[in-house]
């Protein structure tokens, strides 16, 4: 089985023994480029089947871009919107729709959240209950964007270390 995620174990203090490691460090699961490609491929297939012209962005846990695809004939403005949606979902560990809904329901102050865009279409990538990254889609309607992102993110359930 091909590895889509890896353990990112920090080497600091390893020599000091397992107990100390346990106290000072934690094991984390990191999304690889290979995993990001699998997610984007699912989203791309769904987008093409629907004739959707979208940007698909995949970011890591820290919100930094790992992979991006702009399907042919997609509006260029969607590049940054797609990245922004993905970053929002990654660093706030929830779908970006949450913030769009909050604003819609009167919590306008959600617009002030640092590093977030209150736009539906960013979905976290979850492995073993932890958010290890996110996918953001932009280009069509907010609902269609999110559906495509959700389809991509869902494949992460099959990822193993």
């Amino acid at each position: 089985m091909k590895k889509h995620v890896v353990f990112a174990a920090v080497a600091l203090g390893l020599a000091a023994g397992p107990a100390l490691v346990h106290a000072q460090l934690m094991e984390k699961t990191a999304l690889t480029l290979d995993g990001a490609k699998k997610i984007a491929a699912v989203a791309e297939t769904k987008a093409k089947a629907e004739g959707a012209r979208v940007v698909i962005a995949v970011v890591d846990e820290g919100g930094s871009l790992l992979l991006l695809e702009r399907l042919d004939d997609t509006q260029v403005a969607s590049v940054n919107v797609g990245i922004d949606k993905a970053r929002t979902a990654a660093i706030y560990r929830r779908p970006s729709k949450v913030f769009e809904d909050q604003v819609k329901n009167g919590r306008v102050s959600a617009l002030a959240l640092h590093g977030a865009v209150a736009l539906q279409g960013g979905v976290p990538i979850i492995v073993d209950g932890k958010v290890i990254g996110a996918i953001g889609v932009s280009g069509e309607t907010p609902q269609q964007d999110e559906d495509i992102a959700t389809a991509g993110a869902a494949i992460a359930a099959s990822f193993t270390k």
Binding site: L33, L65, L67, R70, V76, V79
Partner: peptide, 10 residues
Amino acid sequence: GNLLALERLD
């Protein structure tokens, strides 16, 4: 100058 595709290696 608008992004079409990007990959960041592990």
